[in-house]
Structures are given as structure tokens and as C-alpha cells.
């Protein structure tokens, strides 16, 4: 297979674009897809201070590196979850990466916040993934607002977005469908959230990360076995294999034609949010979910 642009031997084959690229031309393709996404959805500008959540995986590290190379003002944020045989390696990967590329990094330790994930897992009677996600989103938002960042970016790629959209459609979840997309404006205690890699698949991001020599942390979270999004990704991989390009078309079609009716419906019937009486985070209950988890963990600690 030859590179579509320069005819050198290809190293990445992209069935969804019916093409292949050598390493240098794939870098151009990848970077242009990111720029196209930023401009088409007006995600942010060079004036913005962008905080990027870094898990240590390929997507978040690729996200911060490509934005830095494009000249954006970026800072990394790593949430140390205190999960044995996982968090330590992920944190070391992020710290080494940021040091190598001269990127400012903020680390927030969940053990210091009374929210070490193994303790949360021991206390909760429901799957840990949703609680862990809630805690991470809470601290992404808190750090972004406390430190004066104007945008909060995550490394979510097209496959993440498709899996989430598919899950929301299966449940016809009006609230989630009303605000899914690559940009969610700052509102009422929430920082502006952006997803600069939304046009790129997990496969494309993995190839780019490999070719840039990003030593990402690829071991799965020991607690995430059987996560439903992973099943949806497999299902969509089968669909994309038979119909290349279907993922991007489904997602862009939703943004263009599917989202607005859900936004209108949510304005009529959605929950109104008010500040948590304990921490001030926007919530539809009196006390937000994270404060309730924190209280539950503290109760367990008191019993020990």
C-alpha cells in the first residue's frame, strides 16, 4: 500500500477514508482533522487557557501534544485515583510525558480528598465506573474553575463519542442527548468543556500516538472489566467494517440534525440545577453526588 499524498510506503491504512498514509503525511492528516474540528465547532482560540485532563492513555496525551504543537495555551491535569497496580504507572507516564514536552501539570490526589477509588468501591453497592467517572468530572471542573481556565478539554475520540451517543439513544436519555457534542458552553457553575479529537477514531489516535513516540499507558483499568461502552465499541467496529465512514456520518448527522430537538425538550422538562449545599457544585439534589460519596467513605473509615 502506498501513501495517498507522497506515494511512499504507507504505514497506516484507513478504510474509513479509503486511503493510507506514510508517517509524515499521516501526521499532516491527523493535525488537519484536529484543526478542522476546532474551527468547525468553534471549540476555543489561541487566547483561551485550556486545561486538559490527562489519564495517561493515548488519547489524552495525543490531545495535549497536538494542541501544544498547534500553539495553544495548554496545561495538563492528572487525577491520581489510588488504584493498586494501575494509578502509580499511569501517573508516572503522565509526569514523564509532561516533563519531556515542557507541559505544565497539575496532579490531584483522590486519597488526599478522601476519595481513593478502592475505598469508594468498597463502600458503594453499584458499579464503580459511574462513580469514578463522576468524581473525575467533578475535579476536572473544580480545578478548571478554581484555577481560571477558560476551557476544559478531554481526549474523547470519535469512538468514545459514538459509544456514548449510542448508549444515550438506547435509553432515549433526553438530558444526555441534549448536551452531547464536542463543545458544551460554560454555564451555571460548569466550565466550558471541549473534545478536540472528536473527528478522529481510536485507531487513528493510537497510530498517531505510536508514530509520535508517545509512551502511553495502555493497560486497562483493573476495575473496568465488562464496561458497557466497551461492548458498544465492539459492535460499532463490526458496523464500521461493513460500512466504512458510518461512525463519523452518524455522529456529525446527530450534531447537525438530531441534537436540537433534544435541547428543546430538555429546556421544557429537564431538572433545574442549584449549588450543592456542601461544596457549591451544580446539582439537581440538595447535596451533590460526590459529596454524598465522600460522606459514605468517611462513614466507612469511622467504622474501621
Amino acid at each position: 500500500m502506498k501513501c495517498k499524498r507522497c506515494k511512499a510506503p504507507a504505514v497506516v491504512a484507513l478504510p474509513s477514508h479509503n486511503t493510507g498514509f506514510c508517517a509524515d503525511c499521516f501526521d499532516i492528516f491527523f493535525t488537519r482533522q484536529v484543526e478542522r474540528g476546532i474551527h468547525s465547532e468553534k471549540l476555543f482560540t489561541k487566547e483561551d487557557r485550556i486545561l486538559i485532563a490527562l489519564s495517561g492513555g493515548k488519547d489524552s496525551l495525543a490531545c495535549i501534544l497536538v494542541l501544544k504543537r498547534l500553539g495553544y495555551d495548554v496545561t495538563g491535569l492528572h487525577i491520581d485515583l489510588s488504584i493498586p497496580n494501575s494509578s502509580e504507572q499511569a501517573r508516572a507516564t503522565v509526569e514523564a510525558f509532561c516533563q519531556e514536552h515542557g507541559i505544565a501539570l497539575i496532579v490531584k490526589e483522590m486519597a488526599q480528598e478522601g476519595l481513593a477509588i478502592p475505598k469508594v468501591k468498597a463502600r458503594l453497592n453499584r458499579p464503580i465506573c459511574s462513580a469514578c467517572g463522576k468524581i473525575k468530572r467533578y475535579f476536572f471542573n473544580k480545578v478548571a474553575l478554581d484555577e481560571g481556565f477558560t476551557a476544559l478539554a478531554t481526549g474523547h475520540n470519535l469512538d468514545d463519542e459514538i459509544a456514548r451517543l449510542f448508549s444515550n439513544v438506547l435509553r432515549w436519555d433526553v438530558g444526555y442527548l441534549s448536551d452531547q457534542g464536542p463543545m458544551l458552553e460554560a454555564d451555571n457553575g460548569f466550565a466550558r468543556k471541549v473534545k478536540p479529537l472528536f473527528r478522529l477514531s481510536e485507531y487513528e489516535t493510537a497510530n498517531w500516538s505510536f508514530l509520535q513516540g508517545i509512551p502511553y499507558h495502555y493497560a486497562p483499568c483493573p476495575y473496568s472489566k465488562g464496561a458497557s461502552f466497551t461492548s458498544y465499541k465492539k459492535l460499532w467496529a463490526d458496523l464500521e467494517d461493513g460500512m466504512p465512514g458510518r461512525k463519523l456520518a452518524f455522529y456529525l448527522g446527530f450534531l447537525e440534525r438530531g441534537k436540537v430537538p433534544f435541547q428543546k425538550q430538555e429546556e421544557l422538562t429537564g431538572d433545574s440545577l442549584a449549588p450543592c449545599t456542601s461544596c457549591g457544585y451544580p446539582t439537581s439534589a440538595e447535596v451533590c453526588g460526590v459529596c454524598r460519596i465522600k460522606d459514605a467513605v468517611a462513614e466507612l473509615d469511622a467504622q474501621d
Partner: peptide
């Protein structure tokens, strides 16, 4: 699909004694 530190496209030949890494790109969760 990785051989000798480089990426391989599906059409590429493999040879006796090659050491190949097949690394999943799907992150969990």
C-alpha cells in the same frame, strides 16, 4: 500491528521468525 518498532498495514508480508506485537487500540471504560 508492530514489527521491529514500525507499523504494518494489512497487506504487508510476514516472514519466518518475525516477532510481531498486536496491540489493541480500544480503551476500556
Amino acid at each position: 500491528v508492530i514489527r521491529d518498532g514500525g507499523l504494518l498495514t494489512p497487506d504487508q508480508r510476514l516472514n519466518h521468525g518475525d516477532e510481531i506485537i498486536v496491540r489493541t487500540v480500544v480503551s476500556s471504560g
